[in-house]
Amino acid sequence: MYRASDEVQNEEWLTDLRRAAESLELSGEARSNATDLFLSHVPDADRSKPATAAAALYAGALIAGDERSQTDVADAMDVTRLSVQQRWKELLRDAGFSPPTW
């Protein structure tokens, strides 16, 4: 879980996440999932926040059944695909989901 103050402190990253979700035309459920995942796993270092937000967006879309490719999400968030690839499974596991094994 996260505190309401986490939203305020991370507004810059949430704005980027919302902008990317809009450009990817993600559903409201996917956007809500991504926001919750990001705020529940905000890293301390600012340099890690864009990658975590991108991974949260990818994972949130998966949970909602509104899949996008890792490359598309990474491009929308202006991070590398590898950044998404290295983080999304851990976010899902920490949230109580089992990542797909495709």
Rank of each mutant, 00 (worst) to 15 (best):
S40P: 00
V79N: 05
V84C: 15
P100V: 09
A59Q: 03
E7F: 13
L14V: 03
R31K: 12
V79T: 14
A21V: 11
M1E: 05
E12L: 10
R19M: 13
T80R: 08
K49V: 10
T101A: 11
Y58I: 04
A74R: 02
I63W: 00
S40I: 11
F38A: 04
L24W: 02
S48N: 13
S23R: 06
L92E: 08
K49D: 08
S32M: 12
L39G: 07
K89V: 04
T15V: 15
D44A: 03
F97V: 14
D6E: 08
V73N: 01
F97W: 15
V84N: 14
L14T: 03
A20H: 01
H41G: 13
P99H: 14
K49S: 08
A59R: 01
A30M: 07
K89T: 07
A21D: 06
R93I: 05
R68L: 07
S27K: 12
G60F: 02
P100H: 05
A53F: 03
A21Y: 02
V42I: 06
S27P: 02
D75K: 04
L37Y: 03
T71N: 06
E12V: 09
G96C: 10
L14F: 15
Y2H: 10
N10Q: 15
L62R: 13
Q70E: 12
G28L: 13
N10A: 09
E67G: 01
D44R: 13
R18D: 02
A95Y: 07
A76E: 04
A61N: 09
S98W: 04
L57P: 00
A21R: 02
D36G: 01
P43R: 04
V79L: 10
D75E: 04
E25G: 03
L39E: 02
V8E: 14
D66L: 08
W102I: 03
R87T: 09
T52E: 03
R19Y: 15
Q70H: 03
D16N: 14
L17S: 09
Q70M: 11
R3T: 12
V79I: 15
S48C: 08
D94C: 01
Q86I: 11
D78E: 15
A53N: 07
A61D: 15
D6P: 09
F38R: 00
D66N: 11
R93E: 09
R18Y: 05
S23W: 05
R47T: 15
M1A: 11
T71Q: 08
Y58R: 06
D16Q: 11
D78Y: 08
G96W: 03
R19A: 08
P50F: 01
D72K: 02
S23P: 01
A45Y: 10
E11L: 07
V8Q: 06
I63K: 01
D75T: 13
P100A: 11
L37I: 06
V8F: 10
D36Q: 11
G28C: 07
L26W: 06
P100W: 08
R18P: 00
D94W: 13
S40Y: 03
M77G: 00
D46I: 12
R31G: 09
V79R: 04
W13D: 05
L57M: 07
P100M: 12
E22I: 02
Q70W: 13
E12G: 08
G65P: 06
A21H: 01
A51P: 00
A30V: 01
A34H: 04
R47W: 05
